[in-house]
Write a protein that binds this DNA or RNA. Structure first.
Lengths: 153, 153
DNA sequence: ATTAATGCAAAAGTTTTGCATCGTT
DNA sequence: AACGATGCAAAACTTTTGCATTAAT
């Protein structure tokens, strides 16, 4: 039974940075703040847009570099879905791995987890002589037609 | 019960082309031949390499255009795995959909299908108010260490 | 003879990198 | 003061496209 101590991601970043002789710049703090605040899976472009609302001078390169840094800290997790961008989601340390279901109409992404599927994946891999180190599962579909929040089509 | 008539992919391509007022060029035939012969999931670059063994003048653009054509015929199916390229696999018409398990050591890709997982995916989607139109599942792992055919690392 | 397909080079889209300059430690 | 980070522009990388030319029907 692990005690559920809330970890402050700002602190994690701060520690990582100082532990590695890196520097905590205004840009990094801003980008991290936007990232932590986002409730969604954002692409680098989307992050840039939000970050530029605060500081119009921040460059896309810095966003990419900072997202890479956040990934190294274990704070961000990159995902490549069927479209072309990589999106980043806040990594929730101890929490369980999850998969995604994506609405083709409105692009919303819902996370889910199913223990039974996880077990079947392990079983299949074992049968094929594999040891699973990672997996990815995405369902693409259409959410209930009428109340779809922000339909594209 | 569908009778298992072997369909010749060359014929499928021929029919599609003539039915649509397109033309069956030397390049298309060569690229299609290489594609049908490949036992593996090939990227456009890899196809180009093989095709150029026969005709050094064929362009990458034509490979891309032909792969798109083959996809439209229902003969090829594009997949995007965790690395960056799209790879194409021969579509096996009536056969059932399948998923992939990929060895991180030797890059081999094995296909599998599990009815139980398919059912669970449907169940989960329904619970979340989605109708599934597509899905993708990939397991990444390591195949049995000792007899791995072409280990990279 | 039509008109689609080719090859080339240029463009597009995402991510990375070199470099001079700036800012944190 | 030292040296890591930034912004910019250019490069890398995969895929697409415009266009003059070639070739299948």
């Amino acid at each position: 039974m692990t005690s559920d101590i809330e970890i402050d991601p700002r602190q994690v970043l701060k520690d990582y940075v100082s532990k590695n002789g890196l520097k905590l710049t205004r840009q990094r703090e801003l980008i991290a703040e936007v990232f932590f605040a986002a409730g969604a899976h954002l692409s680098a472009e989307e992050m840039l847009e939000r970050v530029r609302a605060e500081d119009a001078n921040i460059s896309l390169a810095t966003v990419y570099r900072t997202l890479k840094l956040l990934t190294q800290c274990g704070l961000a997790e990159p995902h490549k879905f069927a479209d072309n961008h990589t999106v980043y989601e806040p990594a929730r340390g101890d929490e369980e791995h999850h998969d995604h279901i994506i609405c083709k109409d409105c692009d919303q992404i819902i996370e889910f987890f199913d223990e039974r599927i996880e077990r079947l994946q392990e079983e299949i891999a074992k049968r094929l002589g594999f040891e699973v180190v990672d997996h990815r599962m995405e369902l693409y579909g259409r959410c209930s037609k009428t109340d779809c929040p922000n339909k594209k089509h």
